[in-house]
Design a protein around this nucleic acid. Sequence first.
DNA 1: GTGAAAGCGCTAACAG
DNA 2: CTGTTAGCGCTTTCAC
Lengths: 341, 341
Amino acid sequence: MVVERQRPSTVSLRDVAHRAGVAPGTASKALNGRGQLKEQTRQRVIAAAEELGFQPNLVARGLIAGRTYTVGVLTTDSFGRFTIPVMLGAEDAMGAGQMSILLCDGRGDPIREQHYVRTLLQRRVDGIIVTGRSSDPRPSLGRDLPVPVVYALAQSEHPDDISVVHDDKQGAVLATEHLLATGRTRIAHITGPTRHAAAAHRAAGVADALDRAGETLVLQAPLFGEWSEQWGREAAAQLLRSGQPFDGVVAGSDQIARGVASSLREAGCKVPEQVGIVGFDNWDVMVEASRPPLTTIDLALAELGHFAASTLLDAINGRHVAPGVRRLPCHLVVRRSTETT
Amino acid sequence: MVVERQRPSTVSLRDVAHRAGVAPGTASKALNGRGQLKEQTRQRVIAAAEELGFQPNLVARGLIAGRTYTVGVLTTDSFGRFTIPVMLGAEDAMGAGQMSILLCDGRGDPIREQHYVRTLLQRRVDGIIVTGRSSDPRPSLGRDLPVPVVYALAQSEHPDDISVVHDDKQGAVLATEHLLATGRTRIAHITGPTRHAAAAHRAAGVADALDRAGETLVLQAPLFGEWSEQWGREAAAQLLRSGQPFDGVVAGSDQIARGVASSLREAGCKVPEQVGIVGFDNWDVMVEASRPPLTTIDLALAELGHFAASTLLDAINGRHVAPGVRRLPCHLVVRRSTETT
DNA sequence: GTGAAAGCGCTAACAG
DNA sequence: CTGTTAGCGCTTTCAC
């Protein structure tokens, strides 16, 4: 004979009240520390709740409160390397306030995305965070949603939406100035596709910093290509072939930087002695496996997520949040590839 | 004067009913296609709902139904490279059934984890998926939870829990047999730390496959180390120094494999002509940036997530699910590092 | 065919 | 101090 393992049925506040010999309303007050209760009854209720393993039904509570202490996180393109730290940061900021995260992945499909927004709203989330891998501006979710929305990492096209992004230009300035500060003046820039805002902003930052220092970019222009090691290798080879002297490279990503490093290494060009390299992203596996390990710009994505979530919480709690784009600064992380001794 | 932008207030079924001139109960039936209604009234209600932009309150529905069409996903150690594909697969399986995912990150802290389990239960999720980076068995969440639990990728220590994991041993057999099939017989195994179940299982698979082929491992034993490129490079150098002839390497991860490849390349040892290499994980950035690109074992994590979610849904829907561990097969992905022409 | 009423589990307002 | 009542938004009998 098979004995079906009985799932423990959920106990309600009524059960607790009953066992403690009080009314449900009283039990509610006892457990939530509200109202004036004789200490003894309070204890009795608490004991009863304990004994029965009572778990308050947050669904019911949400129905009354008109809010659910839940925020939706909508990732637009299959979440990955960039969105994860953002989410961790967000979770962190939420965790303290007992908020939970309802996760949806739009997979880059606007239809799917709209569908998810609908479900999130039907589930009565208190707010929505929109995130995505690319910092290119994306269409607004809509301007008339019943809950506040914050765009993190992915910036909304609409200027009145609240967006939180890292500051690519400032990061590039940081990278360039670090190379200059370590005594290099003939600096090249190898980066991703022109069409990406990140590539454009970073290129602008490099140009600015060089300008201010009275220097010009080796080869006159950035080398735009792909966000891959392969491209980093190719571009470095190109640079060597050009015959132009250079002693510093700002790479648009750690992958590119690593490609550059290995290419130079194979060509017998010493890093950091002859050429200094700075990458972008501070992606551990790339940065540490490279020979030498890479100096890089950290996008501080966890902080970004944290900030976005706090901002959303502010808005949820009715505090006024100014619309527009907030740019959070990047950090420089120094490793062997730019060391001078 | 500042005009406060009014957030559109949510409309309830009552509002819709009112506008359509019917009772709430009738409106409910009309919108859900239940009961016998005159086609005309149904249309009237639908129109009213449309006009008001009615979004049914799933919180209220959940309260009645006693279920929320939500599952909790609990990642034990900060989710990352391995848990993401699993979640994507799970989301995929859920998406069809209109289920949503409540995400929690235990950060490897059992206290925090227990806390999250409590919240998930209070939020009345229909079930829980537990996942984590390591396939090492982990403590059970508890045997007396009111909802079904499936462990994905991270296996539960308790044999009566439902766990879904990839088959490391089978994967290693696949890798080894591929090397043998491409004419290599002197095979070495370079992998991660002994203490990891994954390393042990993979080593067992390599041993088994060699055994069956009547061959023995080069150096008699696997080289256990770290899951890093650095270690891959070191181990390969070690192997070369040993003077033992070898023509194949099964690496415990793509990072290790890449390290091995670059070490051999620098030593002038041709891959795949003189030595074939097979990695593990099919991690795109590693596998494609390696020279040559790596043949590897794909863990099929998305399938794993999909399967875990389907299994959970079965359990939620009351179908009987046998307890225990299900091992899903890995796939071989052939690239240049083992090519023979 | 449609309306009225009860109730999901909880909290808040008001009696007693 | 504690019990009773009403109601959050929706669905589901059960009358009419």
